[in-house]
Design a binder for these strands. Structure first.
Lengths: 212, 212
DNA sequence: ACCAGTGCTTGACAGTCGTCAAGTTTTTCT
DNA sequence: AGAAAAACTTGACGACTGTCAAGCACTGGT
């Protein structure tokens, strides 16, 4: 085979791989939405296929098995979710601006992406039972922790202070507030969500020491 | 029917009701252990029955359906879990004693009852998808919050200070630490658990203001 | 125009699920 | 001891699951 022919073959092969990956991603996104709607326990392959424009058999053409499919869907979640606060951090020129921007974004995504967030917590919990999810979950959890840390360390900097705890403590605290707000939001308790919104600035202040 | 006969009937009926309830509870406990082992998504009635000394059909003799059974199991969890720290609070005569006793109990139940705790988080998450669990979950969550508040408010008292946040903030913070410790414990990362143990006293101190 | 191969659908498989009716064993009361 | 009721087992049902093989439709290359 000539060099030209080889390069052409390569181009074709690459195009096919690209198409294959694109469809994989498309199906993973459909999976993500189905999971967000039904939860892990009640999501079947046929249900996922109905949320796409394909039939259920195609899933085994693009994915080895259900686990492979769901793992890919989780990775799609990660792409969406771990840079959410970065522009708030980048744009803030004062601690008040950062604090208010963070609180606004926090409760905006809470209500806007509620089903996606409940899925994340569902999958993180699955990893407590199913070892095969654990590596991906721990990786995403680490990215979420880093995201929170970028907010808190910058907040401390703008206030001329220091973070009061480790990245882990900052993360679990704010994530705990988020989980609780999500639960009450989905339960229809707007009052409880509003109370948490009022408290969130004070929680942020707990996580940084005053300027000394 | 004579009065004597009526009273006798009553006694019999009560005894039968007691027996009925006792067996219901027994089966609910078996359900609880199965759920703790497999998680909500993978727990079937036949599996539950195999963890008891009965056959799978008996479950529909004592429970209307699967939801009824699992709801009862969740209530059993509540009985076990919401008074765990009370004796630590009652016995502590100094803030250091309360703090150290709390930390010890915290990580003791983390490792000792790990499967039960992961079940709780699993069911709490189910309530994000399934409305029928929500009322029970919110009730248990409230009891857990009250339990944490008894610890933190007493801790503040012993230090001559005040709690730094609301009961909700105290609860989600400590529960967040617990969830993270549980995840890393089940993932076999003893180092991460040890680091959280080292940090927990500082987290408690974040939640109370110093004496003024 | 034809052919090969990719992409996709259809239908079937073996297994599991919750549920329940029918029947058997055990307990309880007279 | 014998009858009545409760407690429990067994087996079956329809529905649903993940998986996969067989075949149809369509595309791109020659």
């Amino acid at each position: 085979m000539t060099d030209v022919a080889e390069r052409k073959q390569d181009r074709i092969a690459r195009r096919q791989v690209d198409k294959f990956d694109a469809r994989r991603t498309e199906l993973a996104v459909a999976t993500l939405h189905t999971l967000a709607e039904l939860g892990y326990a009640r999501t079947s392959l046929r249900e996922i296929a109905q949320n796409s424009e394909f039939s259920h058999g195609v899933l085994h053409y693009y994915f080895a098995d259900k686990r492979d499919l769901i793992t890919e869907a989780v990775r799609q979640y990660e792409v969406v979710c771990v840079t959410r606060y970065d522009e708030v951090v980048a744009g803030a020129t004062s601690s008040e601006q950062l604090r208010d921007g963070f609180v606004a974004m926090f409760f905006d995504t809470l209500t806007e992406d509620a089903t996606l967030h409940r899925l994340w917590y569902d999958l993180r919990n699955q990893s407590l039972f199913d070892e095969s999810f654990r590596a991906d979950v721990l990786e995403i959890d680490g990215h979420r922790e880093a995201m929170v840390w970028r907010v808190i360390s910058r907040y401390a900097e703008l206030r001329g202070g220091e973070p009061a705890g480790s990245p882990a403590v900052a993360y679990v605290t704010l994530d705990g507030v988020f989980q609780r707000a999500l639960l009450h939001h989905l339960a229809g308790d707007a009052g409880a969500v509003a109370r948490l919104r009022d408290e969130l600035p004070a929680v942020m202040d707990l996580l940084v020491t005053d300027a000394g």
